[in-house]
Design a protein around this nucleic acid. Sequence first.
DNA 1: CGTGGTTTTGAGCCCGTTCAAGTATCGTGG
DNA 2: CCACGATACTTGAACGGGCTCAAAACCACG
Lengths: 234, 234
Amino acid sequence: MLHAEPYTTCTVCAARAKGFCGAIPLRDLDSLDRSRRLVRFDRRRTIVSEGAPALSFFSIVSGVVKLYRSLPDGRTQIIGFRFPGDFFAISDTETYTTTAEALTVVEACRFSKSRLTRIMQSFPQAQSKILEMCYRYLSESEHHIILLGRKTAKEKVASFLLQYGEQFGREAIQKNHHICMPMTRGEIADFLGLTTETVSRNLTSLARDNAITIGLPHSIRLLNLDLLRHISGN
Amino acid sequence: MLHAEPYTTCTVCAARAKGFCGAIPLRDLDSLDRSRRLVRFDRRRTIVSEGAPALSFFSIVSGVVKLYRSLPDGRTQIIGFRFPGDFFAISDTETYTTTAEALTVVEACRFSKSRLTRIMQSFPQAQSKILEMCYRYLSESEHHIILLGRKTAKEKVASFLLQYGEQFGREAIQKNHHICMPMTRGEIADFLGLTTETVSRNLTSLARDNAITIGLPHSIRLLNLDLLRHISGN
DNA sequence: CGTGGTTTTGAGCCCGTTCAAGTATCGTGG
DNA sequence: CCACGATACTTGAACGGGCTCAAAACCACG
């Protein structure tokens, strides 16, 4: 009965290479296995809520998570998307500062805060890896900050397509494969600081430019990466 | 000849409590002293440049630093400001991802990347502290992201004043002291994703609302914090 | 005092929003 | 498998917040 459920143990986990757990030596994976709990969330499920007591930390095994913050009047802004290997809901504050929601079915490893602290103490390599990933998230935030502050709508949409496309690797895109986008136009808008309508208009505009083709709304093909890069303003 | 130059040693450094070095035990401060080099930058000096080889890491002893990124056509966006105790220019990339410029005279401790790595290996508490500060910077970035993506000009300006004012502590502000702002209107604009004119207009508008008074352009008094908070949209 | 840069203020315009209508898609139950 | 309702997406027309361009006022420095 091998792998009755996928990813039941850390040794066979497909996300390990990308995740912080990749820094933990093979011989200690058993100990890691006992610290975590594999949890599963349906599409659209809120995983943690802004303001709720921060008890757990999550490392994604499969699926896509969106992180967002809201203003009291309901305006919301998506901070970023997280993919297999990424973690979220980390902090040293009493309460979560962002809400995390599953965009697809999500499998993740949940660690209690205290367990995570113990893991970082026992495995300095794990702490280094987490720090390294924090640098990356910081850099991605800065990338997003200049996008929000200084780019036009069309530049934002082109930048988003390129950035999101990178998830699927060079080859997949260069072979003009469709990339599948689990987020709605409204979510793209909440990510780019725009409205649904503006995102829609600019996607069709990019399609007219022959930079992309839009199949079903959630399947987009990137036709001309150089053109997209040019339009993106970078 | 005590303290001929200010902050010559870690033991007397005013920024130690706030900085990552605060996590290093007193008895090891000598070793820290030998790892760093105290450097001084004039106002308006670029400390590190986006794209240049990332060789050093800086921890601020005194002064204010602005971090920014630019697009190829010159549009620039300020990512954030850094104060005594903060660090900047950290990353694990080959080149710096942001430019850092001194807004005032700045004194900082410079560490080579390899020295910093060794310090983090020798003092796990220091690594934990750096990680903790990264969480804070991440949270601040997220705060800035929702500001840029979803707030109006007036909300942005009010948010900025409140956020910047916090540097000076509750008491100073509640006693209606002037707060001194070393950045120009243009820099506030580059931080908030606006233009100089819009910042200026909204500052005078806040003054008309009796939320603030503007003395000399770089000295602002926060009159009504509750009103500012209300206007800020949070 | 003059000179150069910063800040303020004004007038007009434009990009992205808002409001509205129409169309496509998805999920559900028959 | 199809019909139906709900939701998401697209497209159009008009509005308005923030930008651009321009000029005046202010300040800092020699």
